[in-house]
Nucleic acid binder design. Structure first.
Lengths: 222, 222
DNA sequence: ATAATATCAGAACAAGTGTTCCGTGTCAAG
DNA sequence: CTTGACACGGAACACTTGTTCTGATATTAT
């Protein structure tokens, strides 16, 4: 609460605890903390742990081994988002069924500070290069939230009824006309009638994984 | 491995362990499991825990209190990547210092299945629209791994000595010439001499957060 | 039926673990 | 200088906790 400055020792302990939990998925003991932070006495570790708890950085469970919880990590709780398919420009977005089957290989894990609570959300893999005007490559993943309305300025998945295609553009309703603004600033917006578009969802996050995807002609350099 | 069917008791234990961890963020002890699952003997809990480990549902740390890890969660272990600054086209990438200080507001949490172990990695926020040829917007986040060498086909941060600018391009070494391929397929590659480039790191992940960023001229719709 | 295996219960042990007490040194305020 | 708050180190204590041993009961195979 007081949010005063942490001592170097306390900061050292906090980073160790954080790393330890992320590596082992269970918290360290007092003696493990002391050994890692070069503190010989368990009472000193206990003393500084109480300081950290007073400042709100951690929570402690009395008399419980490894009973340390990171206060800040509540914001980084995991959400599991199902990967339900692919998105083509030539098709409407295929929404998943209500039942969320548990398929670990087709699940994308993200933290809540990036995408929120993950309700009604799903992931799509982008196929084709028709999303270039939205600055989206083939192979990118789009995290979407299914909803029929979006606010002005949201990046939305929109089904264009006339031309029968799905596009991702920033949505603006202006004077009874819908302005669809490409994410690429070098491209122009298009104006359409609201009755010719159907909002399918709102894009929450886009990410692109680089590693080991373009494994072509690998020649190590000097 | 064998993936046989779990007994009711083992299934009961597994659900309790899962719920306990999600509630307390640390695993339960053997006796806590026994009490919750109506098992009076610690040896029986220990016996079934070994069964669960043989089937791959959990991992156990020998002689460690609360040393239980959920097998499924190993792929979604968290890595904390420090957000160390911004990346301009007109400057070399500013690398962080060796010491990783604990600054909670400037940390990006991702899962290991997306970015790997997170060693020597850091996050940069993209400023300016000069990365458009890499299909990267202003405001995007780039997760980079600091390394002086990359393999052919890696997306690399490259400092061009002559023109004094940083660029993100796919790297290919071909016949003593370096081919720098833009991510945007509509743009052409450039060929430069290896002595005129300096590899600063490899791009592991790019992501773009949409929510509440472009709050410009918001006019609510019907 | 008989043997073999799997599952279980109780108890005991050694090590792990949080807590507490006492003493020391530092440093700024009085 | 004295005082008090603060941080630290060492030690001891009591409880926790994983492990192991012995034996009993249930299930399955031969």
């Amino acid at each position: 609460m007081a949010q005063t400055k942490l001592s170097v020792r306390q900061e050292d302990m906090l980073t160790f605890i954080t790393n330890f939990i992320s590596q082992n998925s269970y918290p360290p003991t007092i003696r493990e903390i002391g050994k890692a932070c070069h503190i010989t006495s368990t009472s000193v570790v206990n003393y500084n742990l109480n300081k950290l708890e007073e400042e709100g950085y951690i929570s402690r469970m009395l008399r419980v081994s490894r009973g340390i919880q990171l206060g800040k990590n509540q914001a980084s709780a995991l959400v599991q988002i199902p990967l339900v398919g692919r998105i083509f420009a030539s098709e409407p977005v295929s929404f998943p069924e209500a039942s969320v089957s548990y398929a670990p290989d087709e699940t994308i894990n993200l933290t809540q500070d990036l995408v929120g609570d993950g309700k009604k959300m799903f992931a799509l893999e982008v196929r084709g290069d028709s999303m270039i005007d939205a600055m989206i490559n083939e192979g990118d993943y789009v995290i979407m939230k299914q909803q029929a309305r979006v606010n002005n300025g949201d990046l939305a998945a929109i089904w264009l009824i006339d031309s029968e295609e799905t596009t991702l553009k920033y949505f603006y309703l202006e004077n009874d006309k819908v302005r669809l603004q490409p994410a690429n600033p070098t491209m122009d917006a298009i104006y359409v009638d609201p009755s010719t578009v159907r909002i399918q969802g709102k894009v929450m996050l886009i990410f692109r994984q680089i590693s080991a995807r373009k494994t072509v002609s690998v020649i190590p350099n000097n």
